[in-house]
Design a binder for these strands. Structure first.
Lengths: 197, 197
DNA sequence: CCTACCGATCGGTAGG
DNA sequence: CCTACCGATCGGTAGG
């Protein structure tokens, strides 16, 4: 039956992508071999190619899935009827939550995208740039409405996005505060640094 | 003459390390081959080994030099007679300036240290951990003295350090604000997010 | 500093 | 999904 066959293939492909996310995060894309990956999946290296076309394709899947999630949420916030500072706080919380619960793939998309190859690489760079510009746009609206203090919007974007990627260190630490407390602390420091007066 | 010979060797070694910093940042440690590096230096790959012992040694030099610079500055601040918030601001400014002017090697030390091998890897991890703990200690002193708002100190450290690594994006952007403005904006957002009431 | 070369490992394919 | 294997490239060495 085609339906069952498709499900089986996509399921196995998901297993491969999940294991690859874990390995790419731990060792980096270049230092992870297809034989490493095969061992983690539990098959021979050659068998991976029944489910994926190349090592490059795995990275593409990881990066563009993550990019799409963030772009979707950004658009949702752009269309919502709230203050700029609330939009910004929601987006920040979304980033934090994604970094906590979808750690492996978000981290790979953030750190290993440079290893994409060319039609995909330039596409990804463009998406990244557009995302940051639109996020800066929300901040600039907030500045005009005097909700946000007069700062350089691209610099604020840069701080927000990179601060969140620091959750990597939180994941690795032994004595962790809870995910909720982490989120509240990050929002308190970052949003209070932006809020006017 | 031994003096001249030593100078020549160390000079060429510096050239190799500088070119390696640039390549490791652009492509990552694993994706940079010794043949890439040799081509950039202007010699054959085999000739590199007259100045360095291994690819691993280059990464060690880069990472530990950077680590020592930051540790030295931290100790200087710990011993200075100023408020906790001023110490913190000074350290933040030092990180920003290093990231701007010593970009390639600081970035490599921050992102590629995972590729160190074992006696060096565990040593580096320990140094990193100690640095963060002592930085958190300064923040905790500031909280006790009511200079800094009640936040989780390790989380604040994580935000500060990672926000600074975002200067990478600033380096790559075409329409840059000046280094001075970048520094002022980052300090304004991050320090104001920490300062009590 | 170069030529010549090493064993190991890489991503990927053929064929079953 | 496996065995067997490919050409390419890797970090590094010998010898001059």
């Amino acid at each position: 039956m085609p339906t069952i066959k498709t499900n089986r293939n996509s399921t196995k492909k998901e297993v491969i992508i999940n294991k690859a996310s874990k390995l790419f995060r731990e060792k980096g894309f270049s230092a992870t071999s297809m034989r490493d990956l095969a061992e983690n999946v539990g098959v021979e290296a050659a068998s991976l190619y029944n489910h994926i076309q190349s090592k490059a394709e795995i990275l593409q899947e990881i990066c563009f899935r993550v990019a799409n999630q963030f772009m979707t949420y950004l658009e949702e916030m752009e269309n919502s009827k709230t203050s700029s500072i609330t939009k910004l706080e929601s987006i920040l919380r979304f980033h934090i939550q994604q970094m906590i619960h979808n750690y492996e793939s978000v981290h790979v998309a953030d750190r290993e995208w440079k290893h994409l190859t060319d039609p995909y690489l330039s596409n990804y760079k463009t998406q990244r740039k557009v995302y940051r510009q639109r996020l800066a746009g929300i901040i600039e609206q907030g500045i005009q409405k005097k909700e946000i203090k007069k700062i350089d919007a691209p610099t604020a974007v840069l701080i927000m996005l990179h601060a969140v990627s620091g959750i990597e260190s939180w994941h690795r630490s032994k004595q962790k505060i809870s995910a909720e407390l982490l989120e509240e602390n990050m929002v308190m420091i970052l949003v209070d640094g932006l809020r006017a007066s």
